[in-house]
């Protein structure tokens, strides 16, 4: 981290607090209270002895804010850096609001695509497959696959933000989220295929013929295709599961 005005202990406190950024998630301000809570130690330090400026600073971080929580580290770091400059009289405080509001959407989009859309499915499907070898193996692999990149982004993103807007941009571009997102999604799809094969395997009775096995496989592939199409048409998994429950109750009454 650059030699800013803040002592390392304060920066560490802000870094730790980012894990609670969604602690008071609400429909009106979303992560507003969480963001103010995260940045509070920095503000208290920077505006020591200036209670009115401190209140104003806290208030501007209680404005609406929402982004993907892990990627929010970049914005948090950059906001701390900007507050340093504002406290020193080098920057207009209104720039902070514009900056946060301008970034939260697109950074959230990158984070949602990478963390929720690619990394989480990858970790989940790897964990689910390995849990059939041993549940503890599956659980460990799930946690490791997700949390290694997660914690790296939380700390490197925060550090890059602390170096200023340009470094934050360099980090966002250099981290290669686009490429990684597509790669993770492809690997997740491969593992999804293996998981699907396990489902067909489970359906087969011991000692069936090759022909029957091929028939089961073809049926499963067609069903997987049908389900995927339905999910893409925004049919909810709950609706399909309820349908299966009703089918089950009709077919197997007792």
């Amino acid at each position: 981290m650059s030699g800013g005005f803040l002592p390392a202990s304060v920066r560490r406190a802000v870094w730790r607090r980012q894990f609670l950024v969604q602690g008071c998630w609400n429909y009106e301000g979303m992560q507003n209270v969480g963001f103010a809570y995260s940045i509070l130690p920095a503000l208290v330090h920077l505006y020591a002895g200036r209670p009115e400026d401190l209140t104003k600073a806290i208030k501007r971080h209680l404005e609406f804010f929402n982004t993907q929580p892990a990627m929010g580290s970049v914005i948090l770091g950059a906001a701390v850096r900007m507050e340093e400059r504002v406290a020193a009289g080098e920057e207009d405080p209104r720039a902070i609001g514009t900056f946060k509001v301008g970034l939260m959407g697109s950074i959230g989009a990158i984070g949602d695509a990478y963390f929720w859309g690619a990394l989480k499915p990858l970790a989940s499907v790897a964990g689910a497959i390995l849990s059939f070898v041993h549940p503890l193996l599956g659980i460990s692999v799930l946690l490791l696959i997700y949390n290694f990149p997660h914690l790296v982004v939380r700390s490197r993103g925060f550090a890059a933000g602390m170096e200023g807007q340009e470094k934050a941009m360099t980090f966002l571009k250099g981290a290669g989220f686009k490429l990684r997102t597509e790669d993770r999604k492809t690997v997740a799809a491969v593992l999804g295929g293996i998981y699907g094969a396990m489902a067909v395997w489970h359906a087969l009775a011991a000692g069936v013929s090759w022909g029957t096995a091929a028939l089961y496989f073809a049926a499963a592939a067609l069903l997987a295709n049908l389900f995927t199409m339905m999910f893409r048409k925004a049919v909810s998994p709950s609706e399909l599961l309820l349908l299966l429950l009703i089918v089950g109750l009709l077919l197997f009454p007792r």
Binding site: G117, P121, T186, A189, G193, V200, T228
Partner: peptide, 24 residues
Amino acid sequence: PLLPLLGAASVLSCSRSERSAVFF
């Protein structure tokens, strides 16, 4: 077996690329 198949389809539906479907 339909339930893990639904799960597999959920994973596939996270990706829209042709490549992912082929790999799946």
